[in-house]
Amino acid sequence: MASQGTKRSYEQMETDGERQNATEIRASVGKMIGGIGRFYIQMCTELKLSDYEGRLIQNSLTIERMVLSAFDERRNKYLEEHPSAGKDPKKTGGPIYRRVNGKWMRELILYDKEEIRRIWRQANNGDDATAGLTHMMIWHSNLNDATYQRTRALVRTGMDPRMCSLMQGSTLPRRSGAAGAAVKGVGTMVMELVRMIKRGINDRNFWRGENGRKTRIAYERMCNILKGKFQTAAQKAMMDQVRESRNPGNAEFEDLTFLARSALILRGSVAHKSCLPACVYGPAVASGYDFEREGYSLVGIDPFRLLQNSQVYSLIRPNENPAHKSQLVWMACHSAAFEDLRVLSFIKGTKVLPRGKLSTRGVQIASNENMETMESSTLELRSRYWAIRTRSGGNTNQQRASAGQISIQPTFSVQRNLPFDRTTIMAAFNGNTEGRTSDMRTEIIRMMESARPEDVSFQGRGVFELSDEKAASPIVPSFDMSNEGSYFFGDNAEEYDN
Score class of each variant (00 low, 15 high):
R174Q: 01
R317D: 01
S359E: 14
V299E: 04
S478Y: 15
F39H: 04
K7I: 08
N483G: 05
K351C: 13
N125G: 13
W104T: 01
I25Q: 01
N432W: 09
I197F: 12
L466M: 12
G282I: 06
G187W: 07
E244F: 01
Q398L: 03
R121I: 04
S9L: 13
I33W: 04
T411G: 06
H82E: 11
N124C: 09
N483L: 05
S287F: 01
Q459T: 02
E210W: 07
A123D: 11
M426I: 08
I475W: 13
Q364R: 12
Y52W: 09
W139S: 13
D112K: 03
Q231P: 09
I57G: 01
E469D: 11
I265Q: 01
M239E: 02
M426C: 12
Q308S: 09
A2Y: 01
M196P: 03
R75W: 10
F304D: 03
S345P: 00
V363M: 07
Q235A: 10
N370M: 03
A27Q: 10
R19Q: 06
G34S: 11
D290S: 08
L298S: 07
R452I: 15
V363A: 09
L79V: 08
S60L: 05
L56V: 10
L379V: 12
E46A: 05
I301L: 14
E80A: 14
L226Q: 10
R216Q: 13
A284G: 10
Q58G: 00
I425Y: 09
R216A: 11
G102D: 09
T45A: 11
G435M: 15
G185A: 09
Q364A: 12
S274K: 02
R74G: 07
D203N: 12
R117Q: 13
L266H: 07
G169Y: 01
S473Q: 09
S326K: 02
A472F: 01
M137L: 15
A181M: 12
C333E: 02
A451D: 14
L172T: 13
I347M: 10
P354L: 04
R441W: 11
Y97K: 00
F489T: 02
V29C: 15
Y296F: 14
F412D: 04
D240T: 12
G485V: 10
K91E: 12
T232Q: 12
A251S: 08
G349K: 04
T15D: 00
V270Q: 12
R305H: 13
E294I: 00
S376I: 04
A471D: 03
M189R: 04
S407P: 00
N59D: 13
F39Q: 01
L381A: 02
Q405M: 07
S245I: 09
F71I: 07
E192A: 08
Y97T: 00
S310W: 03
T188K: 12
S392A: 13
M13W: 12
V155C: 08
L226S: 07
I57R: 01
M374H: 14
S50D: 14
S262V: 03
S297W: 07
S482I: 12
V183F: 09
L47C: 12
G212W: 07
F304K: 00
N124G: 10
G300A: 11
I316V: 13
N124E: 00
I365R: 04
P173N: 02
A2I: 00
P89I: 11
M1G: 12
I25A: 07
L264G: 00
E465R: 05
L341G: 01
Q12D: 14
I63M: 12
M191S: 08
A403K: 01
N368M: 07
S478G: 00
S345A: 03
I347T: 13
Y40T: 01
I408G: 00
S473R: 13
E375I: 06
V285Q: 07
K198Q: 12
T157S: 10
A218S: 10
E292W: 05
Y148F: 12
G282K: 04
Q42Y: 09
A129S: 13
D439L: 03
L358R: 03
E484M: 15
E294G: 08
W120G: 08
R400I: 02
E443P: 03
G394D: 04
K184I: 07
H272F: 01
I63P: 01
F464N: 07
A401G: 14
E252K: 13
T215E: 01
V100G: 05
S326G: 15
A471M: 05
N142G: 15
R452H: 03
I109R: 02
M32E: 03
T390M: 04
N395G: 13
L56Q: 01
R267Y: 03
S457I: 13
R213G: 08
G431R: 02
E81L: 12
S310Y: 04
R38D: 07
A284H: 11
D439N: 12
S274D: 14
I116P: 01
I33M: 14
M374V: 09
A403G: 10
S170I: 09
T215S: 11
G169I: 06
N498H: 02
P318F: 06
E254D: 13
A22Q: 06
G94E: 13
G362W: 09
Q459S: 14
D491P: 01
I33N: 10
R391T: 08
S176L: 01
K470A: 07
R8L: 08
D72V: 13
I365N: 13
S376T: 08
R99F: 09
I425L: 07
F206C: 09
Q241R: 08
E14L: 03
L353D: 00
D145A: 10
E46G: 09
T257L: 04
D16S: 01
F429Q: 03
L166H: 06
M481T: 10
S287V: 03
L108Q: 05
F458N: 01
C333N: 08
D72I: 03
R342F: 02
F464E: 06
G54T: 02
H140C: 00
D128C: 15
P419F: 04
S392F: 13
K198G: 00
T130W: 12
S69N: 08
T6D: 00
E372P: 05
R461G: 11
K273G: 03
A260F: 01
N492T: 13
K198S: 08
D112H: 12
C164W: 09
M374L: 09
G356V: 07
T257K: 06
A387P: 06
Q311G: 15
V352Y: 09
W330K: 03
P89G: 15
R117V: 11
Y289F: 14
A472M: 03
S84T: 07
T45P: 08
I197R: 00
F338W: 07
R361E: 02
W104G: 09
V285M: 05
G404N: 14
I406C: 06
A153Y: 03
K348T: 03
V329C: 13
T157E: 00
S269W: 09
I41K: 00
V155M: 07
N144F: 07
V280N: 00
T62R: 08
K470F: 03
N101R: 08
M136W: 06
E372S: 06
F479Y: 13
L226N: 08
N432Y: 13
L172Q: 10
A471L: 00
I347P: 01
E18D: 14
R8A: 00
A387E: 00
V186F: 10
C44K: 05
T411I: 13
T411H: 06
D491V: 09
V186W: 07
T171A: 13
N76Q: 12
S28Y: 14
G30V: 11
N142H: 14
T350K: 10
D160M: 05
Y289I: 14
G356K: 01
R261H: 08
E14W: 02
L306C: 01
E24S: 01
Y78C: 10
G209N: 12
F420Y: 12
G158W: 03
L276Q: 14
E53I: 01
T157G: 02
G268Q: 15
H324I: 02
V242G: 01
R118L: 13
L193I: 14
G300S: 15
G394R: 10
A471T: 14
K48M: 13
G460K: 06
Q235T: 03
P283F: 01
M136C: 14
Y281P: 02
T232M: 04
K229V: 10
G200A: 12
S482H: 10
M374C: 12
R19M: 07
Q42F: 03
A251P: 09
G126I: 04
R382K: 10
R261P: 12
I425S: 10
S482T: 13
A427P: 08
A233I: 15
G54F: 08
N498M: 13
G490P: 08
A146D: 02
G295S: 08
F230R: 02
A472V: 07
A146N: 06
S297P: 10
I201Q: 15
K214W: 05
H334M: 02
I116H: 07
N368P: 12
A336K: 02
